[in-house]
Amino acid sequence: MKKIMSGLLVLLVMANCKTEPKNSNGKLNIVTTTTMITDLVENIGGDKVNIQGLMGSGVDPHLYKASAGDVTKLSNADLIFYGGLHLEGKLVEVFEKMESQNLKTVAVSDALDKSTLIGSEYFASNYDPHIWFDVNNWENITKFVVEKLSMADPENKEFYMENGEQYLKKLENLNTDIKSIIEGLPKEKRVLVTAHDAFSYFGKAYDFEVVGLQGLSTATEAGVQDVQKISAFIIERKIKAIFVESSVPKRTIEALQASVNSKGHHVEIGGTLYSDALGNAGTFEGTYIGMFKYNVKTIVGALQ
């Protein structure tokens, strides 16, 4: 595996040593990693940029490995946007090498003050990378992306700024809608149990107690003791529903449900939440705003 990774790094560095512009139609060639970032850059960049997203719906960024095709996309990019904070765990070495070569990589997490990040002693970066689950974070990241696009393509700065302002208004409306929906759920019922610990920013921003069966990264498997511990928690708190995630195998949540039910407390699987990836392209859930509304309605509806 190390030899393969070294080969990818060499290809990236060699390809990016070219001095000629990579864009063939006057537009920036942009590569993004997760679907959330792809959606954001599409909203701001519009028809002034060419965007290629590495990851699609249902793809787990924690476990994603670069393919030969990805190397080509990355090497031909004028600008690369990725999550950072070790979200794309198996691509970290690639991005760090590119950064050391002064290539144009942008970690959107750099938009945030580290004092606002949620730390974890169990995760390699010491910060929770699921920053998009607080709309306030996404607003700051929107401004950051506008700035980076404007610096890379100053001729279209006004276009990016205008699109950014329009999208910020949509995010403001989204935040208002989310809070309105959540207000209908009594505080004692705001306990969210999911497959892995992806919703801590959501919990902090919208007053939910959040429990993940797995850790911050899906590379960490849940054990029998984890299942038993959370099973006891669900029974004690009389929680009505738990949730699977679109990018995480549902077997661990099904095992948790079976454990709870075997002890005489019935718990439902309240639905599938989008955590590390958006829904299918072209659907309501395939956008950041649609995903967030869908998640909140699913959570509140199941816990009522």
Results as ranks from 00 to 15, higher is better:
residue 256 L to G: 08
residue 125 S to Q: 04
residue 162 E to D: 14
residue 152 A to N: 12
residue 14 M to F: 14
residue 207 D to S: 11
residue 192 L to V: 10
residue 37 I to K: 02
residue 79 L to G: 01
residue 149 L to Y: 01
residue 144 F to Q: 10
residue 187 K to W: 04
residue 81 F to G: 05
residue 249 P to E: 03
residue 65 K to I: 12
residue 256 L to N: 00
residue 18 K to A: 14
residue 132 W to D: 10
residue 254 E to R: 09
residue 88 E to A: 00
residue 93 E to M: 07
residue 240 K to T: 04
residue 59 V to G: 04
residue 236 E to F: 12
residue 78 D to N: 07
residue 162 E to V: 06
residue 270 G to C: 05
residue 135 V to G: 07
residue 259 S to N: 09
residue 231 S to T: 09
residue 66 A to G: 04
residue 280 N to K: 15
residue 16 N to L: 05
residue 156 N to F: 08
residue 19 T to D: 11
residue 144 F to T: 01
residue 286 G to V: 03
residue 87 L to A: 08
residue 89 G to R: 05
residue 265 H to W: 12
residue 248 V to K: 04
residue 43 N to F: 05
residue 254 E to D: 13
residue 93 E to F: 10
residue 168 L to Q: 03
residue 28 L to M: 06
residue 170 K to D: 06
residue 287 T to V: 00
residue 199 F to D: 08
residue 139 E to A: 05
residue 77 A to G: 03
residue 67 S to V: 05
residue 242 I to K: 05
residue 91 L to F: 03
residue 10 V to F: 14
residue 279 G to T: 08
residue 33 T to S: 09
residue 118 I to T: 08
residue 275 S to D: 02
residue 133 F to G: 07
residue 137 N to C: 02
residue 170 K to A: 05
residue 54 L to A: 01
residue 60 D to W: 07
residue 104 K to I: 05
residue 283 T to E: 05
residue 134 D to S: 03
residue 7 G to S: 09
residue 140 N to S: 13
residue 16 N to V: 04
residue 187 K to P: 13
residue 136 N to C: 09
residue 147 E to C: 00
